[in-house]
């Protein structure tokens, strides 16, 4: 049915109570639906990285490690990897050795379930857990240069590796929480992630192409930010865009959304550090 026809179905005598009733039905249907793909979700063979929506210049920047600005952060991360820190006076390398082998594929399965905390943790949170528990060092603040450099360095070891996040059955309720958040309309503009990223990718929001919100490249260099940024930063800016109150960094809701996005991207290759407009 096209929109004009629907207009006639709904045009007369719909009061506010009925509208809320309709919204409630839609919401209940979403909540009740377990892992089976919902209408509007992208089938596996139609998934596309944000890379494929970019112009040739931005692609070329990502393709060439000597011009990709994110590679500077990866190099910084490599230095930090071998630098002793905290009162334990240990470097990451003292426990994990050569990251090229020990960290290969690790970022591709994050956020991962942490037994002690009984919830998923992001790669950034895992690194800070190592700082706290194994180095006896203060946590690195979210979006600080050092945490971005370390997580870019670790995630870079998975470049080209297929995403496996979400395999652990203990993650199931958290993936579902993330999916519900993705489907939930929010903010003054009353839009859900799915409205743009499942239903309208490849269209243009003002001048910008809307992508499928695939999390394959993080942390990544965004030209608009003029720096590297985390997936959480990206999600927070989409929330602010719809005039919603963005969740704080590290909030369980953001971790759940991140986990849902990674599980939704299962099998897609990691690109860290990617470049985006």
């Amino acid at each position: 049915m096209d929109r004009r026809q629907r207009l006639f179905v709904h045009r007369i005598g719909i009061d506010h109570g009925r509208m809320n009733f309709w919204r409630a039905i839609v919401l209940a249907a979403l909540v009740a639906t377990a892992p089976a793909p919902l209408a509007g979700e992208i089938p596996p063979d139609a998934r596309r990285s944000g890379y494929s929506f970019m112009g040739p210049d931005t692609r070329a920047m990502q393709d060439d490690d000597t011009s990709s600005p994110g590679m500077l952060f990866v190099l910084d991360g490599e230095t930090l990897w071998t630098k002793k820190a905290g009162s334990a006076d240990k470097a990451c390398a003292d426990c994990h050795g050569d990251a090229r082998s020990s960290m290969k594929g690790v970022a591709a399965r994050y956020p991962a379930f942490d037994k002690a905390l009984a919830r998923p943790v992001t790669l950034d949170q895992r690194i800070n857990l190592c700082r706290a528990n194994h180095q006896q060092a203060a946590p690195l603040p979210y979006e600080s240069r050092d945490i971005l450099a370390l997580s870019a360095f670790v995630a870079h070891q998975s470049r080209g590796v297929a995403i496996t996040a979400g395999d652990d059955p203990q993650l199931k309720p958290f993936i579902e929480q993330g999916r519900n958040l993705f489907m939930q309309r929010e903010g003054q503009l009353n839009l859900a992630c799915t409205n743009c990223h499942d239903d309208n990718f490849e269209k243009r929001l003002a001048g910008s192409p809307i992508t499928q919100a695939q999390p394959t490249g993080y942390p990544l260099y965004r030209l608009e930010w003029q720096t590297l940024g985390s997936l959480e930063r990206r999600l927070r800016s989409c929330m602010t865009g719809v005039r919603a109150q963005a969740y704080d960094y590290g909030a369980p809701e953001l971790v759940a959304l991140e986990l849902y996005l990674m599980a939704r991207a299962r099998g897609m290759p990691m690109e860290t550090p990617a470049v985006r407009p």
Binding site: N20, G187, Q188, N190, A244, Q245
Partner: peptide
């Protein structure tokens, strides 16, 4: 997907 421009209730997590 068009927002309601003159409405202030029934919305979620408004900034």
């Amino acid at each position: 997907i068009m927002p309601s421009y003159y409405r202030a209730d029934g919305l979620v997590r408004v900034g």
